[in-house]
């Protein structure tokens, strides 16, 4: 009699495993935040999906964002334009370091205000030192710019032709698109931050907390790989304003720059501004020795 009682109390190995598997699944789901739906949790890598699946995801996201921010959202999944390879030019002789691009970028691309994420970092450099990252400052606080004897060197994603960041991603959540833009599938990103360690330009940024963008400042015109609202625990970066440039528009940093130091165009079009710059101006790329082959050209 005594022996039988103990057997009844004991859980079989099978039930124990079943229960613990269920419990851990729910724990993971719960940890992902209450607004993560079942479909979202089991969503596949966006790049591998067919148009129907993409459409369903886009629809779900549009509804989710519209509900969250009280504004009609559009999430584009527009593919690259044929025969297009984007290149960017920045005239370091004309940039005055006003940082207008930094904030225009944050507004256009829905970057978290607190904790603050900026895709563009403007470095102040002394003219007598030249392009010298070691002696540059991002936190300069001047009454007026440009400061005498200094020049300014904005740095964002260099959209490398040979990007080190995409190679280290263990899950394939980031890659280079046909038009040269390096993108992230935020839903597939596991937040390991290997890409941030691999990027020699400090161009990738991590959402350490739930991104905070005021409802009245959110930009509802978005792209899946671009400025759609991100979540805590994913990496984000400059996409040349993918939501704008795939529609033919200039990136918003180009639009805002008060001195017209920022240039943008199609490297495959011999008549483009960027090709004119490459042909006629003195051009340099940042950290050329690393063979990342940036498509972001500084010139003067």
């Amino acid at each position: 009699m005594e022996g039988k009682k103990t057997i009844e109390k004991k859980e079989s190995r099978r039930t124990f495993l079943k229960k613990s598997a269920l419990a851990s699944t729910f724990a993971t789901l719960a940890a992902c935040g209450s607004d993560t739906s079942w479909e979202e949790f089991f969503q596949k890598n966006f790049r591998t999906l067919d148009d129907d699946d993409k459409k369903k995801i886009i629809e779900r996201l549009e509804n989710k964002y519209t509900e969250k921010y009280g504004k009609k959202f559009s999430v584009s999944s527009k593919d690259p334009i044929d025969e297009t390879l984007f290149g960017y030019g920045l005239d370091i002789s004309r940039c005055i370091g006003c940082r207008k691009c930094v904030y225009a970028c944050a507004e256009e691309n829905n970057q978290s205000r607190d904790p603050q994420i900026h895709w563009i970092t403007v470095l102040e450099m002394a003219k007598d030192k030249g392009v010298d990252l070691f002696h540059s400052h991002a936190d300069y606080d001047r009454e007026l710019v440009p400061e005498d004897d200094h020049f300014y060197f904005p740095v964002a994603c260099q959209q490398c032709e040979n990007p080190p960041c995409t190679k280290v991603c263990p899950v394939g959540a980031t890659w280079k698109e046909k038009d040269g833009i390096v993108v992230v599938d935020y839903n597939w990103c596991i937040g390991c931050r290997f890409c941030m360690a691999a990027c020699p330009y400090g161009a990738r940024h991590f959402n350490w907390a739930e991104p905070d963008v005021p409802k009245d400042e959110i930009n509802p015109v978005t792209h899946y790989y671009g400025n759609r609202p991100r979540m805590k625990g994913v990496v984000e970066k400059c996409t040349f304003c993918i939501q704008r440039v795939r529609e033919g528009l200039y990136p918003s940093c180009v639009e805002i720059c008060p001195v017209g130091a920022r240039k943008f165009g199609n490297l495959l079009d011999p008549d483009s501004e960027i090709r004119y710059i490459l042909k006629h101006k003195r051009v340099l790329v940042l950290k050329e020795e690393l063979n990342t082959q940036p498509k972001f050209y500084y010139f003067y």
Partner: peptide
């Protein structure tokens, strides 16, 4: 496009200094 005169005052064309946006948060 912008005309030259939109950025450079033709009577005093040197581009004027301006107040920068705030430095990034520490």
């Amino acid at each position: 496009y912008l005309l030259c005169a939109h950025c450079h005052n033709p009577h005093s064309p040197k581009y004027k200094k301006m107040k920068p946006e705030p430095a990034p948060a520490d």
